[in-house]
């Protein structure tokens, strides 16, 4: 699904924040992305959701060189990627329902299908009673669940999660990881950036470890 070959990334002509990254994410793969603050995890996540293009090297999404694709074709690829941000990035002006429904609306789903899907997802996430509320009235854990619901509702082929269980209690954390495992079994490639070693032990998967912008074996 994603192939990176000798990728480097620098911002505005500054020093390289990622150096010589080569990795391959296949269908149904599950990786943890680990590393200290400033090691380049966020930058690598940006490359993985095409929020940035590499300064050097090649990235192929679904066997297509992303640097050579038109903007509209890159947008189509992004629709296949679900992203969970550490800071949630819920839109404060919208209700929880509308926040979760955003990817479905962007892909042109009907209002009826959106209502059914969002209600089902909210029920599973324990947000059914909060759908009409604005995110600011939710607790940190509820906001994180809404962000996760938004990322997975369109059944993405690639799921990128930055500290997805950081604000959740243990029970909900396990439930979310269970959801990721379920999606993974259906073929979704998953990358979870985390510092949580307990999580890694509980749900063991290969590690991608970054140190000073380089992947270490």
């Amino acid at each position: 699904m994603i192939n990176m070959s000798h990728v480097g990334l620098r911002y505005d002509g500054g020093p390289e924040v990622l150096t010589d990254i080569s990795l391959s994410l296949k269908e149904g793969s599950f990786h943890y992305l680990m590393g200290q603050s400033g090691s380049g995890k966020t930058s690598l996540m940006r490359l993985l959701h095409i929020g940035k293009l590499p300064s050097r090297g090649d990235i192929h999404f679904f066997n297509k060189d992303v640097s050579k694709l038109s903007r509209s074709k890159r947008a189509l690829i992004r629709q296949k990627i679900g992203v969970i941000f550490q800071d949630f990035r819920l839109i404060p002006e919208l209700s929880v329902f509308d926040n979760i429904a955003l990817p479905l609306r962007l892909s042109g789903e009907s209002d009826k299908a959106i209502k059914t899907d969002v209600n089902a997802m909210a029920e599973w996430m324990g947000l059914k009673d909060h759908l009409k509320m604005k995110p600011v009235f939710l607790s940190g854990g509820q906001q994180q669940r809404a962000a996760i619901a938004r990322a997975v509702i369109a059944k993405p082929q690639i799921l990128l999660a930055d500290e997805p269980t950081g604000s959740l209690d243990d029970e909900m954390g396990l439930k979310i990881m269970g959801l990721f495992e379920e999606l993974n079994k259906k073929g979704t490639a998953i990358v979870v950036a985390t510092h949580n070693k307990n999580l890694v032990k509980a749900f063991p998967h290969p590690l991608l470890t970054l140190k000073s912008g380089e992947l270490i074996p």
Binding site: H49, G51, A75, L102, P103
Partner: peptide
């Protein structure tokens, strides 16, 4: 800006 960026990440094309 933040909403436009979010839409962009979610796969909205520039023309959309």
């Amino acid at each position: 800006k933040s909403i436009v960026e979010l839409f962009h990440i979610m796969g909205a094309s520039p023309s959309k």
